[in-house]
Design a protein around this nucleic acid. Sequence first.
DNA 1: AATTATTTTTAGATTAATCTAAATTACAGT
DNA 2: ACTGTAATTTAGATTAATCTAAAAATAATT
Lengths: 219, 219
Amino acid sequence: MLSLVEENYLKAIYHLSEGGHLQVSTNALAEAVHTKPASVSDMIQKLDRKGVISYTKYQGVKVTDEGKEAALKVIRKHRLWEVFLVKHLNFNWDQVHEVAEQLEHIRSPLLIERLDAFLGHPNVDPHGDPIPDATGAINTKPQKQLQQLSPGSEGVIRAVKDSSPEFLQHMDKLGAYLGAQIKVMDKVAFDSSMKIRIDRATTIFISKEVAQNILVQEN
Amino acid sequence: MLSLVEENYLKAIYHLSEGGHLQVSTNALAEAVHTKPASVSDMIQKLDRKGVISYTKYQGVKVTDEGKEAALKVIRKHRLWEVFLVKHLNFNWDQVHEVAEQLEHIRSPLLIERLDAFLGHPNVDPHGDPIPDATGAINTKPQKQLQQLSPGSEGVIRAVKDSSPEFLQHMDKLGAYLGAQIKVMDKVAFDSSMKIRIDRATTIFISKEVAQNILVQEN
DNA sequence: AATTATTTTTAGATTAATCTAAATTACAGT
DNA sequence: ACTGTAATTTAGATTAATCTAAAAATAATT
Ligand SMILES: [Mn+2]
Ligand SMILES: [Mn+2]
Ligand SMILES: [Mn+2]
Ligand SMILES: [Mn+2]
């Protein structure tokens, strides 16, 4: 049984190790959970004792199979709640994260099972992130950063890498949304910025930073 | 700003003082929040310092206006979530309390406002308890304990005083539900048990204890 | 390889919430 | 008014989560 705080640490470790880094460093984790490295050092020893991560001093941590299962349960809840907020309570996609961060800790197997059914067993959240099923299985489709496409190629926006309100509000301003059809019109070699056409209608310019945070399914 | 634990104490104090007792005793509160009197003694001093209750040593506590406002916000959330669970997630009325006990602490003014609208601004929860509006106003209708009715009188079940799973499951077994039409057929002087007819169809016997926990609106 | 610099861990404190045991106050019945 | 019981409060500890400052280990640079 993990506390709310322990769940947040575990989820952060899981997310940090998703990015390829098998060993998650103390400093990176401190940054992610907004605490100091000293606090992290204490906590990872506790999580190691609980068996959800494996930790060797000065070498960082790694989630165990048991830890992965626990992390995925929290992530599942987080994303299902996000779907509820957007689909049924008319939240915008930039307003859901903070609330879901709280709701993900509600303990009730029945609740999450019923919520999932109520929502029609969605497989992605409002940011395009996949929702693990009750067993923890994730349905992951091949996606590329928009930045990696070359002029002429087309695709559909499927997810965003950055779910911060700032980025999402910028997306809204650009008229870029999940499901939008896009075509790369031009790519500037100098700064990797791009000109893209959305829904065969409007043409916009986006910076490299933006293009890196848009994930597309290529046609 | 109150912590989750402080919110639970405050809500308990509010509920205990609803029963007419203006001053809530340390022991009663300890029982209600499942802690020891020593812990309560500490906590009520803190809540007094925060201005939500007024406390004089050895004399018990009383919620202040500010405290009442805060308590009603938590109660509003608790009851709205209960409605959601029953109406949309198919929970039975005996399954909602524990989960609502957690959900009532989620902090998001937007969430509760939207949830209220989504539910169609209900004014009672699944146990017939009134739901305070956003300003804290409660719409309270005249209700009597079924136990107080005399033979021949009729009415409608509007609420239950006891929301424990045990009592609610017993209600289910009896076929007694909110909105049911009832008529008192007979009342035994010896033990105050009653014979009542539900929906002009089935006749059942109920004990004094049961009759005291059923609230009816008399015709 | 030796010396810095960085990262990580430990030591020692702090705050919130709880407990047990002891001290105090209030109340009730003679 | 006195005395015993019950209720309440205080004292002192404990656990979880955090912090700052200092020590130790690792990594990077001459
Ligand atoms: Mn969280
Ligand atoms: Mn998301
Ligand atoms: Mn609660
Ligand atoms: Mn209720």
